[in-house]
Amino acid sequence: MISFNYENDFKLDNEAQLTTWISSVIVSEGCTEDEINYVFCDDAYLHKLNVEFLNHDTLTDILSFDYSMGKTLQGDIFISVERVIDNAKDFEVTFTEELQRVLVHGILHYCGYKDKSESEAKLMREKENFYIKQLVED
């Protein structure tokens, strides 16, 4: 089950469409969906989590806590809407595209993809682009 939670004034207007899309990504990657919670928040909220749980004193757009067991995906994905807005400007894409990218990015991590090395990051970006294109075409 995919749920969307809000710690700020932001609200998705297409939760059902995004739920279907995320579920299809999970199936396409050969995984099973369990409980996945997206939490939309601001920079301060996410920064506090980043310091408290990862000892990283930096801003980030997404922070995921993976409770998956094997190919059964479960976890909490926190997204700073402020970072998504800023990143969209920096990368010269729409807010919607950047939001879709972070939504699928968290799921791809749960599916086992990494992004620490250059080759891992390249594969992650290719997967993100592939799935974003699927959402746009639907």
Rank of each mutant, 00 (worst) to 15 (best):
D86Q: 14
R125C: 05
S3H: 05
E7A: 10
N37S: 15
F4P: 00
F130D: 07
N14C: 13
E15V: 01
R125A: 12
E29F: 07
S3P: 00
V93E: 14
L135S: 02
T96Q: 14
K89E: 14
S117W: 03
Y45L: 05
Y67P: 00
S80H: 03
L63Q: 13
I85G: 00
N87S: 14
L12P: 00
D115Y: 12
D86I: 04
T20V: 11
S24E: 12
S80L: 08
L46D: 06
E128D: 07
T19L: 03
H109T: 05
F65W: 12
D66K: 06
D115G: 15
G75N: 02
S28Y: 03
Y110G: 03
R83V: 00
D86S: 14
F40K: 00
I62W: 03
L59R: 11
E82L: 05
R125I: 09
S119V: 13
F4S: 01
V136M: 11
F95I: 04
I22T: 06
L12G: 00
I132Q: 02
S23K: 12
K89F: 10
S24Y: 03
W21P: 06
E118Y: 10
Y6D: 05
V104D: 05
E120P: 07
S23V: 02
R83N: 12
M1C: 08
V102P: 00
M69G: 11
Y45D: 15
G70F: 07
L49V: 01
T60K: 09
G70R: 04
I79C: 08
T32L: 11
N50D: 09
F91D: 15
H109G: 10
E29V: 04
N8T: 10
F65S: 08
Q100N: 14
L18R: 06
D115C: 12
R101Y: 10
L135K: 09
T72E: 11
L99E: 06
K11T: 06
K71T: 11
I2R: 02
E29W: 03
N37G: 04
M69Q: 13
I85F: 11
N8C: 15
I77V: 13
N50L: 13
